[in-house]
């Protein structure tokens, strides 16, 4: 008699997280390729960039990109100070990635802590955390971020902290629900009956099972933080000139909107591509973890 497989669940290829990089749809793979590209550009910026991103040249101001009549000396042209646009774009990748990763990581720390406390302990802890989340949501975050930056000064670290303080809520909301759900599972009851301490239960039973939520929200918040950082720069606060921040480049380009629209178009396109890459990765991860939406 031939060996017939039994009626087991379809998922027989081991735990999901091991398969992540090899599975998923086209969008997910595209996102991973794009994001890897951005990371490589950021890491090797000094080797790729054709010029010093800070060096100005009054003789070479507002050169158009090659396809609009420019030269290969400045493939994407130059800005209002005659700085090479491509080089600034390449170094700008570093700022966007650092701010996005840093702010999302700090937001994750704040939000996850609150969410886990509320979800695991419930009761009064949950009510207090809910109250804090309500306050956070009620405050207009961009406005508040601008005000804090104006008061506290600018710089990458300040931007990271400000963005984290205004972007932790989703971690808290989702993890509260996820932790409450996991804490109600029988394996948590069993661990408790086995004599495990509460700290051990949180560490070994609950956290590993909400990790996927954390990773997914992290990608979304990272995208949000990149956008928000660019918006702050665009409004003239946060990362300051002469740093090659993409938002700042667009802000500087506004003055030349009619003369050289490429200054705005290309930097905005770069932000869009990076955010798109991060979001595609996030969407792909979510589809892998929660596949029910696909029918």
């Amino acid at each position: 008699m031939s060996v017939r497989t039994t009626n087991l669940p379809l998922d027989q290829r081991g735990p999901r997280f091991l398969r992540l990089p090899f599975a998923g749809k086209f969008g997910f793979r595209l996102g991973i390729v794009m994001l890897t590209g951005f990371v490589l550009v950021a890491v090797f910026a000094p080797y790729i960039a054709p010029h010093d991103p800070y060096s100005q040249s009054l003789l070479a101001r507002l050169k158009p990109p090659v396809w609009a009549g420019g030269t290969w000396e400045h493939p994407l042209g130059t800005d209002g100070f005659g700085r090479d646009y491509l080089s600034r774009l390449i170094y700008g990748t570093r700022i966007s990635l650092i701010v996005g990763l840093g702010a999302a990581a700090l937001a994750m720390l704040i939000g996850t802590t609150l969410g886990v406390i509320a979800g695991v302990f419930g009761g009064a802890a949950n009510r207090i955390v809910s109250f804090i989340i309500s306050i956070r949501l009620a405050l207009p975050s961009l406005l508040l971020a601008l005000a804090i930056l104006q008061i506290a000064g600018s710089g990458v670290m300040v931007v990271v902290v400000v963005l984290a303080v205004t972007h932790w809520d989703r971690f808290a909301v989702v993890l509260r629900t996820a932790c409450r759900q996991v804490a109600g599972q029988d394996y948590v009851t069993r661990a408790r009956a086995m004599g495990a301490s509460e700290a051990r239960i949180v560490r070994t039973e609950i956290l590993p099972n909400v990790l996927s939520h954390i990773v997914i929200i992290f990608t979304f918040e990272m995208a949000q933080c990149i956008l928000a950082a660019a918006a702050l720069s665009f409004l003239g606060l946060g990362i300051q000139a002469p740093e090659p921040s993409w938002g700042l480049m667009m802000s500087e380009g506004r003055a030349f909107l009619v003369i050289n629209p490429w200054l705005i178009t290309i930097a905005g396109f770069a932000i869009m591509l990076l955010v798109l890459a991060v979001n595609l990765v996030g969407d792909g991860l979510r589809d892998l973890v929660v596949p029910k939406e696909r029918s």
Binding site: G27, A223, L227, A230, A231, F234, G247, M250, R254, L257, V258, P261, I264, T265, G268, I271, M272, L273, V275, L276, N279, L280, D283
Partner: peptide, 21 residues
């Protein structure tokens, strides 16, 4: 997905370029 990735001020500036300029 595209809408989520485009900064709103950029969309605004592109619209200005298209319809306004």
């Amino acid at each position: 997905v595209l809408g989520q990735a485009m900064p709103s001020y950029w969309v605004g500036l592109l619209l200005i370029l298209l319809f306004g300029v």
